[in-house]
Nucleic acid binder design. Structure first.
Length: 793
DNA sequence: CACGCTCTGCCTGCG
DNA sequence: GCAGAGCGTG
């Protein structure tokens, strides 16, 4: 007894020591997260704290060893010799330790029992690649790793018939959704001016994110007319989706939750399959996704979520930061592990980022630290205008490229909005600096690409009226609006799809005359369906371009449509690439793949080029040198952010931007900004002011603009003759002097427009122009001497 | 039915 | 300042 107890002790010690040795490239906290395979686990992973490493190692660990680290059982018939050998194994190279451990591990887990939600496809692919290098290609490919949408689509394709979804259902993108909603509104007779489709879309989307059906939406609306209208549109919209055999992005999640709640065979399958569930970028999940996670994880309760509340930047899209802030309420027994050591950025950069984010109130308290040297200070710089700002960036890239022998791919330019890229692209081109822009117009959203995809969708799912409408007269086939409307009317009357009517046009007197044209179109589709049934996807794409006349149309347009032709042909190679990377390539699979890619998925850090993208896209990436142009009030934070919560989100965005950098950060701003065709003089961003002075190197005056006075923290603002901005704080300080002055943030009242809030104040020719966001009529610019603004009590 | 003119309305953006 | 939508005309 004595003997065996000490043997047990020795064995367990040796086993744990071996596991620790196996992961000695991780720190203690990271290792703990890897070993904690059972039960709910929240990993609060600060920026650059090795979150992905933990996630990958943990999954590999689960598959290989299960809960072996904490499992106190010992293998049967273990001898003291074996334990001695185990101890001796500590000196072996890691691969051999791994071998030895698998002999003694008490558990392992088939890869298909492991589920991991990632934020982008790119993250999922990277994860699979990293798993492949430790576990081998075959095992890695059996892990369920993907975005919420990918995983849900897999479940919907398999079990969706329960919900009435038939094979080959379509995914509606934002544009399809918008068009459908507009058409629903017209049907009901709701004025698009009074109720913008954009608002309706956002409302319906947020209802779906809250898992609310149209019925619940209507019940909640009560007497609220507007909300009742939205509920009506919601109902009709869902009806349209159902008829078209389509789902929108929000439905993919919502319907999956429904499926799991209502269909026993689905939930049984999932509970059986997903023994281990992990979620990356947990701070950006929404309510529906959280419910999905709970349903899936509640069988085995082996749920690990990783995230950083400070990097939650999708609130505007429904992400519920409460998911991460209140995880311990959903799972009171959750273990919490904080990863606070940053391995990415210099301590100056981290100090700057910490100091900015410290201004946020709603967050998990934590303090990231870096063991890297101080490094360079943050450079803060003001330029005269956006052209100068762009040139400044180009010049710095050249300088640092030569002096510090940097590659172009060391540099990233991260901005608040895509429209900021234009000037910078120009400057980089002129300076012959290779660069790539991520985002802007997404490839799959270009008209010509969407047109070809619409053909493919119709081939796959002829009932998709929306896509059919898109292409029935593209290229022109003399099928005009009048005729389409007639076909639509017949379709509604007979309960058929547009295609159903068009393919049988001769039987309807109303459109009998046009039957040949409609039937010609249907024959094109039928022929393509035949190709789809026998040939490859890429062949189908090529045939589509040829037989629909689309390619011919583009060719005949010559030079103007050269790019379009290229894009369309690019689609053929995309299809070929899809065929190569998938085991059972199908048209439906290709279309799904295409609907679910994001622009960041195409980012390839191997290419030696400067990269331009929004801060949102840069989440999860890192670069040696980061430029952040447009650090101005009204841009970053944007003019749309008003309440404290919006500002906190913007601040998190600033935090994300700064923490992307490993070695150097440039914060840039512009004195005179041309925006929406107007000149704006923005104040420096408050986030710039929040940088600690000792970590900042002020390079305020650009070489070109040195002869002109500039705004700076210390200097008084300049009063140039025709146009200049006065610091809002200044106005506030001088407030009570002569005529009443208002500061940014003040509540004011206007005779006609009513109450509102001052958004900006600009001195101009002795007068002050206030930009006021009125509660009822939106934002207006007013001259102080005319507007007769009063302070609102 | 196609073209061209005017009007509007603008962030970020999973998939 | 620019693109996309709506409207009127040839």
């Amino acid at each position: 007894m004595e003997q065996s107890s000490s043997l047990t002790q020795s064995f367990l010690q040796a086993k744990c020591a071996l596991f620790e040795r196996l992961y000695d490239n991780l720190n203690e906290r990271q290792r703990e997260a890897v070993f904690t395979t059972e039960g709910p686990l929240l990993v609060l992973a600060g920026a650059g704290s090795g979150k992905t490493t933990v996630l990958v190692n943990r999954i590999a660990h689960i598959i290989r060893y299960g809960n072996s680290y904490f499992d106190d059982r010992i293998p049967e018939g273990l001898t003291s010799d074996e334990v001695g050998q185990l101890r001796a194994a500590l000196s072996l190279p890691k691969e051999e330790i791994a071998e030895v451990l698998s002999d003694y591990a008490s558990g392992s887990c088939p890869p298909w029992n492991v589920l991991c939600f990632t934020f982008t496809n790119k993250a999922a692919n990277e994860m699979k690649e990293r798993l492949a290098s430790t576990l081998g290609e075959e095992i890695a490919s059996d892990v369920w790793a993907g975005t919420f949408h990918k995983i849900c689509m897999r479940l919907l394709r398999r079990f969706g018939s329960f919900l009435g979804l038939s094979d080959g259902f379509t995914i509606y993108d934002t544009e399809d959704t918008r068009k459908t909603i507009v058409s629903c509104m017209r049907k009901i007779g709701i004025d698009e001016k009074r109720l913008p489709p954009k608002t309706v879309m956002a409302e319906i989307s947020s209802m779906k994110n809250m898992l609310k059906s149209d019925r619940e939406c209507r019940e909640e609306a009560g007497k609220d007319f507007r909300r009742k209208q939205i509920a009506d549109i919601y109902t009709l919209y869902q009806e349209r989706l159902r008829l078209a055999n389509a789902l929108d992005f929000d439905d993919i999640i919502m319907q999956t939750v429904r499926l799991l709640r209502e269909d026993k065979s689905t939930i049984d399958y999932c509970r059986r399959t997903f023994r281990y569930v992990s979620v990356d970028e947990f701070q950006d999940t929404n309510y529906a996704q959280m419910q999905l996670i709970k349903i899936l994880a509640d069988g085995h309760r082996n749920l690990m979520v990783v995230g950083d509340d400070d990097q939650s930047i999708y609130r505007f899209r429904g992400a519920a930061i409460e998911n991460i802030l209140g995880f311990d309420k959903s799972y009171p027994d959750a273990k919490v592990i904080r990863l606070e050591q940053n391995y990415r950025s210099t301590s100056n950069i981290l100090g700057a980022a910490n100091s900015v984010i410290a201004n946020n109130l709603s967050r998990h308290q934590k303090r990231l630290f870096s063991s890297l040297p101080a490094g360079e200070k943050i450079t803060v710089h003001a330029c005269e205008n956006q052209i100068e700002e762009a040139r400044y960036i180009a010049r710095k890239i050249k300088e640092m490229g030569i002096r510090e022998r940097r590659k172009f791919s060391d540099f990233a330019i991260l901005y608040r909005m895509n429209s900021q890229s234009g000037f910078i692209e120009q400057a980089l081109s002129r300076a012959a600096i290779p660069h790539r822009v991520i985002g802007n117009v997404r490839f799959y959203e270009r008209k010509e690409v969407k047109d070809i995809l619409a053909y493919l969708t119709v081939v796959n799912n002829p009932n998709d009226d929306l896509r059919l409408r898109r292409i029935i007269n593209e290229p022109k086939r003399k099928i005009g609006d009048k005729l389409i409307t007639d076909v639509e009317r017949l379709a509604a009357m007979n309960g058929k799809s547009l295609y159903g009517i068009a393919s049988d046009a001769a039987s309807y007197p109303l459109i009998f005359k046009s039957a040949p044209r409609l039937e010609d179109f249907c024959n094109i589709i039928k022929n393509l369906q035949a190709v789809a049934a026998t040939g490859s996807v890429s062949e189908l794409v090529r045939t589509t371009i040829e037989t629909t006349g689309y390619g011919e149309m583009l060719e005949s347009e010559g030079e103007i449509s050269k790019d379009k032709l290229e894009n369309v042909n690019e689609l053929v190679s995309d299809a070929a690439a899809y065929e190569e990377t998938h085991e059972n390539p199908t048209l439906a699979g290709f279309l799904e793949e295409v609907s679910l890619v994001s622009d960041i998925d195409s980012y390839d850090d191997e290419k030696n080029a400067v990269v331009l993208m929004t801060i949102h896209s840069a989440k999860g990436l890192e670069f040696p040198v980061v430029f952040i142009p447009g650090m101005e009030e009204g841009i970053f934070p944007g003019s749309m952010s008003q309440d404290a919560e919006d500002i906190e989100e913007e601040r998190r965005l600033a935090y994300v931007a700064i923490t992307r950098a490993k070695e150097k950060v440039f914060c840039l701003r512009v004195i005179e900004r041309l925006i929406y065709g107007r000149v704006q003089n923005n104040l420096p961003s408050r986030f710039m002011e929040e940088l600690p002075e000792e970590l900042v190197e002020d390079e305020e005056l650009s070489a070109q603009g040195a002869n002109r006075p500039m705004l700076s923290k210390q200097k008084k603002p300049p009063i140039s003759k025709e146009f200049s901005t006065v610091s809002a704080l200044k106005i506030s300080a001088d407030g009570g002097r002569s005529t009443e002055k208002f500061a940014v943030g003040d509540r004011v009242r206007h005779n006609v427009f009513g109450g509102g809030m001052v958004m900006s104040a600009t001195e101009m020719g002795g007068d002050t122009i206030y930009e006021v966001a009125f509660d009822r009529v939106g934002t207006k610019k007013l001259m102080a001497s005319f507007a007769k603004l009063k302070r609102e009590e």
